[in-house]
Design a protein around this nucleic acid. Structure first.
Lengths: 111, 111
DNA sequence: ACATTATATCGACTAATATCTATATTTGCA
DNA sequence: TGCAAATATAGATATTAGTCGATATAATGT
């Protein structure tokens, strides 16, 4: 089971305008889009993306006005969609954007 | 009320990595992503995008195994998100992808 | 005018999901 | 070893959203 490759797989897809998507591909890609389709998750993603050095999860709980479990839940979704990397550093967990994920989404669209 | 400009507005946004999104912008952009976050809508979008001359709504009902009202509902969502244009031609309605929408989404990501 | 065809809206039902509180797990430190 | 801090999981709840059948609206042609 590969739960962390959805977004990076996009890189290998033909642009969306080239041919109609089959059902399986559509499900996979829609999964990535829907992860970015929640305002809190999108803000989390942009917070992480705006720091090249990555972000400690502990710094992501405060700014968005949601509980710690809710932030944790959304970070998990971002990670499982392949949009962010995570790394444990002692007691903290650091999140960083997967560059391929950004490129992938752009490629998907039509770049 | 501008219901048909969300996606094209993306064009004017700095790339998502540049600065963290504010709440309002995140809501607006997440709205566009969530529209593409449904497999049926994404397939509709790709069906429309794969035909430069546009697609008659009547040709979009059959292929996806959903009822006519459901397809109509999704087409409305795509239109209101600014992702597709619609044009009445007699009894039929023709949908076409807004080129700015594709570019916009790509720009948003990081292009 | 009337029937037919294409599309949209309405109302209801169901499934998915965002959220919370409470609790468990993991790690570092004294 | 025991305590505190950081993160994750579990369970419950409320809202959202996808779907359908029935029906309304709009346009065409006879």
């Amino acid at each position: 089971m590969s739960t962390v490759t959805a977004a990076t797989d996009l890189q290998c897809c033909p642009p969306i305008t080239e041919a109609a998507l089959d059902d399986e591909t559509a499900h996979r890609l829609a999964g990535v889009f829907s992860v970015l389709g929640d305002p809190i998750r999108l803000r989390l993603f942009s917070l992480i993306a705006s720091r090249p050095e990555g972000s400690c999860a502990c710094d992501l709980v405060g700014p968005l006005g949601r509980s710690q479990p809710t932030i944790s839940h959304h970070l998990k979704a971002l990670h499982e969609a392949g949009l962010v990397d995570r790394e444990r550093r002692g007691r903290w967990i650091w999140y960083s954007v997967r560059p391929e994920a950004l490129l992938a989404a752009a490629t998907l669209i039509n770049c």
